[in-house]
Amino acid sequence: MSIWEYANPRAFMGWTGKALPLIWGLGIGLTVLGLVWGYFFTGDDFRMGSTVKIIYLHVPSALMAINGYFLMFVASLIWLIRRHHVSALVAKAAAPIGLTMTLIALATGAIWGQPMWGTWWVWDPRLTSFLILCLFYMGYIALWESVSDQDLAADLTSILAMVGSVFAVLSRYAVQFWNQGLHQGTSVPVVTGERSVDDIYFIPLAVSMAGFFFLFLALTLVRARAEVRARRLGVLIRREQMA
């Protein structure tokens, strides 16, 4: 059996229906655990005081904002190549959630920046990149909303996602060229395997990251399922009108 079997709408509805309760449970459970742990039971940082606790929101949401865009890119690519409808609908479903994650990352960053850097906003490369990411999400969602034919909208938004991804990478380097920045380096450098964050902070952070991941997954699947049903509904209504 090929992996693409899972993308058949009927099979998709079947396995997501079974897996969703577990994913919801993991998402909400781990998020609540990570955030409660972080908010109530971790110590303050020597330099940052209690504002270090914002990291449990900021890092996971930023992570999922970027991964959400990546998911949209891959799903759009699959739609363009293999024409799986579910793939296009997953890309559509992921966009508003990615936008929410971007907004959370921007908001928590601004609230953290105010006491630490003395300003809500600086035109730092990372902040600027996130603002651009936010604009990408908004444009992508707006394009989906303004085309009523779903297949047409899927094609147009997929093309936009392809070109947009190239420009997202370009923007990232252009922005770095433009301004060096205040933002600290990455907290969890995966490549080097080192950590710039101590275990006391890292474990609740990891729990919270896992929680955000599953929450994102659950929301994307629920939205994609609603899109599949909305499509079926559209077909039925058209059939009724014809009869």
């Binding site: 444009g139 707006a142 947009g164």
Partner: peptide
């Protein structure tokens, strides 16, 4: 991208805005 869309002007600006950033910088 937006030819077929009625009143696509506003949408067009929104779509093009982030794409213009590297050139402007």
């Amino acid at each position: 991208l937006t030819v077929g869309i009625k009143r696509g002007g506003l949408l067009l600006s929104l779509l093009v805005l982030p794409l213009y950033v590297p050139t402007l910088i």
